[in-house]
Design a binder for these strands. Structure first.
Length: 423
RNA sequence: GUGGGCGUAGCUCAGCUGGUAGAGCACCCGGUUGUGGUCCGGGAUGUCGCGGGUUCGAGCCCCGUCGCUCACCCCA
């Protein structure tokens, strides 16, 4: 609630506080794990970059660059922009650090906050979170398929089911040029309002994405880029599909798919969730042939994706997926009296070093209150630590789910807990 | 940038045709000495988003403003 002098978060940012943040953490780790298993390595980059990186990399004709960037001047008079997406920054860093001079493909993953100055709505925030990967320097349909499969594995490991994968190919430069000529000619004959016409001159492909029925109808017979693919592009695209089938990754070919960033070429894909609102894309990506050269690097092709953590959290909630059990402690220690607090601290420290999750009851509440706290924490076991336990070296280990207790010596507590801990 | 909906305790909300606020959940304490989940008793919490107007009187009406939210646009 907004009180008089209370400072609120800036408009449209997503925040995750406990217990909700558990979901965020679980989702992020689930999305990242398949990339790590496939040999991708972390790249951690600044959230702000030289504005030119995005105008050149992402493309000035995109809405992202033309009206959605957080751009400001720093104290040295440089134009700085909060990163609206991840790929351009990764390419900049790859070139700057010469990662493209080593073994290829360079395989990188990232995770972090991105910024777009849009009007917020369900699943769309001004600061949002993405994980992504980029595989740079190798042109191979098998790599395209693997990248897509890594994203798919991430969604599956969250437990998501109600999503679908759409793929297409944007072909090479010549294919796109030929198609564009025909598409523009086709669009010129249509009955469209001025705003839409303007949009079409900036990027005619955008009209395929229009949600209005009258536009959809008119675009129904528009020339499709897939029909213009060169022999090589067509073969590559078929290879990708063959590999995806072998991997058991389900997909549909959507020749009308449109992506918002200008650098995509060749294989392009998008994951869409069925239970989300208007913002239903949970991830997407594709190959980009010209980006590296555009940014002053070698003529190398890359492929990657960005997955929306926020939207995956929303999707997981919509599907009723819960993550809570991953976040409960193995043991809850209740010290009685000030003297036993030292023991509680040292015992907890020792148990934690073996990977157990251990909490202590703090403050001076009564035993009953501490037991309640233990119950609510979801801890599997509880011990009460008083003078008698410390002097005898034996505690009553209580299993919270059954209420049963058993006598365990402090010396064997760790071994005991490790044997029953699932983690 | 354009449009719709909504702003009452930490959360979810109730508040009849205007008479100066309530429930459930959560939280804290207790129900005789050191063991939770049920039950019972007790307690704290709101300038009813903010500002102005109408009125004897406004959470309820009017105007403005800010915020949240959903959709368009665009996209993760």
């Amino acid at each position: 609630m907004s009180k008089k002098n209370q400072i609120q978060a800036p408009k449209g940012v997503s925040e995750y506080v406990p217990p909700h943040s558990r979901k965020f953490e679980s989702v992020r780790e689930a999305l990242l794990a398949p990339a790590r298993s496939a040999g991708y390595e972390l790249i951690e980059l600044p959230v702000f970059e030289d504005t030119e990186l995005f105008t050149r990399g992402v493309g000035e004709s995109t809405d992202v660059v033309s009206k959605e960037m957080y751009t400001f001047e720093d104290r040295g008079g440089r134009s700085i922009t909060l990163r609206p997406e991840g790929t351009a920054g990764v390419m900049r860093a790859v070139i700057e650090h010469g990662l493209d001079r080593g073994q290829l493909p360079a395989k990188l993953y990232y995770s972090g906050a991105f910024f777009r100055a849009e009007r917020p709505q369900a699943g769309r925030y001004r600061q949002f979170y993405q994980v992504g990967i980029e595989a740079i320097g190798t042109q191979d349909s098998a790599l395209d398929a693997e990248v897509i499969a890594i994203a798919d594995a991430g969604f599956k490991s969250i437990g998501l089911q109600k999503y679908r994968l759409e793929i297409t190919s944007l072909g090479d430069a010549q294919s796109r040029a030929k198609h564009r000529v025909d598409l523009v000619a086709y669009i010129e004959k249509l009955d469209l309002d001025d705003a839409t016409k303007t949009r079409a001159t900036i990027n005619p492909l955008r009209l395929f994405d229009d949600k209005r029925e009258e536009v959809k109808k008119q675009m129904a017979t528009a020339p499709l880029l897939l029909d213009y693919l060169s022999e090589k592009s067509r073969k590559d695209f078929e290879e990708v599909q063959k590999h995806l089938k072998a991997l058991g990754v389900e997909f549909t070919v959507n020749p009308r798919m449109v992506r918002g960033l200008d650098y995509y070429t060749g294989t392009t894909f998008e994951f869409v969730h069925d239970l989300l609102g208007a913002q239903s894309g949970i991830g997407g990506g594709g190959r980009y042939d010209g980006l590296m050269a555009e940014l002053g690097g070698q003529e190398l092709s890359g492929i990657g994706f960005g997955l929306g953590i926020d939207r995956c959290v929303l999707a997981a909630e919509a599907e009723g997926i819960s993550f809570d059990q991953e976040f409960t402690s193995d043991l809850f220690i209740i010290p009685l009296g000030d003297e036993s607090k030292t023991s509680a601290l040292t015992i907890a420290q020792q148990l934690r070093s073996s990977g157990l999750r251990v909490e202590i009851s703090f403050g001076d509440r009564a035993l009953k209150g501490s037991m309640k706290a233990a119950d609510k924490s979801g801890a599997a076991y509880v011990i009460v630590l008083g003078e008698s336990e410390i002097s005898s070296g034996t505690v009553e280990l209580k299993e919270m789910s059954t209420g049963k207790t058993s006598s365990v010596t402090l010396a064997s507590l760790q071994k005991h807990l490790l044997s029953v801990s699932s983690k």
